[in-house]
Simulated scan of single mutants.
Amino acid sequence: MPARRPSLFRPLAAVAMVAASSLYALAQQPPSPSRVRGTIEAVDGDLVAVKSRSGEDVKLHMTADLRVVGITRISLADVKVGSFIGATTVPGADGMPKALEVHVFPEDMRGTGEGSRPYDLRPNSTMTNATVAESVVGNDGHTLLVKYKDGEKKVLVSPDTPVVTYVPADKSDLKAGAKVIAFVKPLSDGSFETNRISVGRDGLTPPM
Score class of each variant (00 low, 15 high):
M1L: 11
P2L: 07
A3Q: 12
A3D: 09
R5A: 12
L8W: 15
F9G: 00
F9C: 06
R10C: 02
R10Q: 11
R10G: 04
P11C: 01
L12K: 07
A13M: 13
A13H: 05
A14E: 12
V15D: 05
M17P: 00
A19Q: 11
A19Y: 04
A20K: 00
A20Q: 04
S22D: 09
S22K: 06
Y24N: 09
L26P: 00
A27S: 15
Q28Y: 02
P31G: 12
P33I: 08
P33Q: 09
R35W: 11
R37A: 13
G38W: 10
G38C: 09
I40C: 02
E41C: 04
A42T: 13
A42Y: 06
D44A: 14
L47H: 11
A49M: 03
K51R: 15
S52G: 07
S52F: 05
S54E: 15
G55T: 04
E56M: 03
D57L: 04
V58H: 01
L60N: 02
D65S: 12
L66D: 06
L66V: 10
R67W: 04
V68L: 01
I71L: 04
T72P: 00
R73V: 13
I74T: 08
I74F: 01
S75T: 04
A77Y: 01
D78Q: 11
G82F: 14
S83W: 07
I85H: 08
I85S: 11
I85K: 08
G86E: 08
T89P: 02
T89I: 08
A93M: 06
D94M: 06
G95Q: 05
L100F: 00
L100V: 03
P106D: 01
P106Y: 03
M109P: 01
R110M: 10
E114Y: 01
S116C: 14
P118L: 11
P118V: 07
Y119N: 14
L121Q: 10
T126K: 13
T128W: 06
A133C: 01
A133K: 15
E134T: 03
G138V: 12
G138Q: 14
D140R: 15
G141Q: 03
H142S: 15
V146C: 06
K149Y: 09
V155E: 06
V157L: 10
P159Y: 12
D160L: 08
T161W: 08
T161P: 09
P162T: 11
P162L: 14
T165Q: 06
P168N: 05
D170G: 10
K171M: 10
S172D: 14
D173H: 12
A178N: 11
A182G: 09
K185R: 15
S188Q: 15
G190S: 10
G190L: 13
N195M: 08
V199L: 05
R201Q: 15
R201M: 14
D202T: 02
G203W: 02
L204I: 05
T205S: 12
P207A: 05
